[in-house]
Simulated scan of single mutants.
Amino acid sequence: MPRHQDPDNMPTIEQKRDPLFPIYLPLQIFDDEEYDCRTPEEWLLLGLEPGSQDRKPVPGKALLPTDDQLGHEDPKSHKLTYKWVSVGVLDYDKETKLYLVHKTNERGMVRDEEGRPILNGGVTPEGRAPLMPRQYWVPRVRLLFLAEDPQVFAQRVVSANTLRKKTQALLRYNLYVDCMPVDRLRSIDEKSLGRMKQLAMSTSHLRKEIRVLNCLQCLEKEVSLDYERTMNKIIFDGVITSKPQTFSYVTLPEKEEEKVPEIGMGSGEERWALTIHLMSNGHLLFLSRS
């Protein structure tokens, strides 16, 4: 569970804690809904018995805080302990994609504060009552229905957690590269940049547009910055690869296998020129509409 960061007690690289860096991305944004065997509406319909119009809570287990008071006040507190507890699923919110769950009592039953059963998701003719201390809105990745395969659900959680770790590692990697200085780096060759501009401005229509020339100056800076970042990336990857034990906390992105195109795409300068050309046209289209 994501927690508040304590600036006075941040782990150091030498301590080699796992995880070394705080978890700050919620797990539900990496959840793969393809693991689900039912829709939310179908899950809730399991609480309907034949011949009855009252929908009962659907049994399940949810990852919830053990302290209900602190769990509602500060769910990211370091003092909180989360455990998988038995719950009854009451309702589902389509906008937030969260399920309303209620902790069961000692007898494994879902009851309100007065000991009455909770039916139809707790909604009465007067509307929905305020959230009770034992009720929580939770994402699907923190809710296991007893009617589903627990092994499939475990794979779902592991898959989401693996994707979250990979995403956070890539975010840190790009941050490292972006923070590297570009001073004293070899800049892009002026002749190559000139050929790119010449190829990009090869049409007579673009050569006559003053706004294109202004846009081209911005694109030149962007191309130069991208070139310098690529040089820094090559240097950074080389250092990390040469000392994997020293920089064990850095995860390099996986190299994608380049596919050879069936039709030639021209030189690198021609591809850059095409990019500048398309971006210039898009900029003109935006200006013409504004």
Rank of each mutant, 00 (worst) to 15 (best):
G266T: 07
F145E: 02
D178V: 02
M231Y: 00
T275Y: 11
L278V: 12
L98T: 13
E220R: 12
W272M: 14
N105P: 06
D18Y: 07
K255Y: 00
W84Q: 07
V182E: 13
T39C: 02
S224Q: 15
V110R: 06
I29G: 00
R17Y: 04
A62R: 02
R271S: 05
S192A: 15
I263C: 02
K61C: 05
V158R: 12
L274D: 08
V152S: 14
P50W: 05
D54S: 10
N214P: 00
L285H: 09
P22E: 08
Y99S: 06
G47L: 07
D6C: 08
E106V: 10
P40R: 05
R156H: 15
A160R: 03
G194H: 09
D36R: 14
L45M: 12
R164W: 02
R3C: 04
M201F: 15
P117C: 07
A154Q: 11
L119M: 11
N174H: 15
D237A: 12
P150F: 02
K221Q: 10
D68Q: 10
T251W: 10
P7Y: 07
W43I: 06
M109S: 11
G51K: 01
H102I: 00
I234M: 11
R207N: 02
T275M: 09
C218L: 15
S202R: 15
K56S: 13
N120V: 05
L216I: 09
E49L: 15
N281K: 11
E73N: 06
T66Y: 03
G264S: 14
V89S: 06
G71N: 02
L274R: 11
V87F: 05
G121Q: 03
P125M: 03
N9E: 11
V138N: 02
D183Q: 11
I29K: 13
H283F: 15
P253R: 07
Q168V: 03
Y35A: 08
C215V: 01
T275P: 00
K166E: 10
D183A: 10
P181M: 01
T230Q: 15
E14I: 14
K61E: 10
Q245M: 08
G268D: 08
D67T: 04
E228K: 13
R271C: 04
N174C: 04
D31M: 01
E256L: 14
M279H: 07
Y35Q: 07
K243D: 08
A169W: 07
K197L: 10
K83C: 09
Y249D: 12
Y24V: 14
K61R: 13
F21R: 13
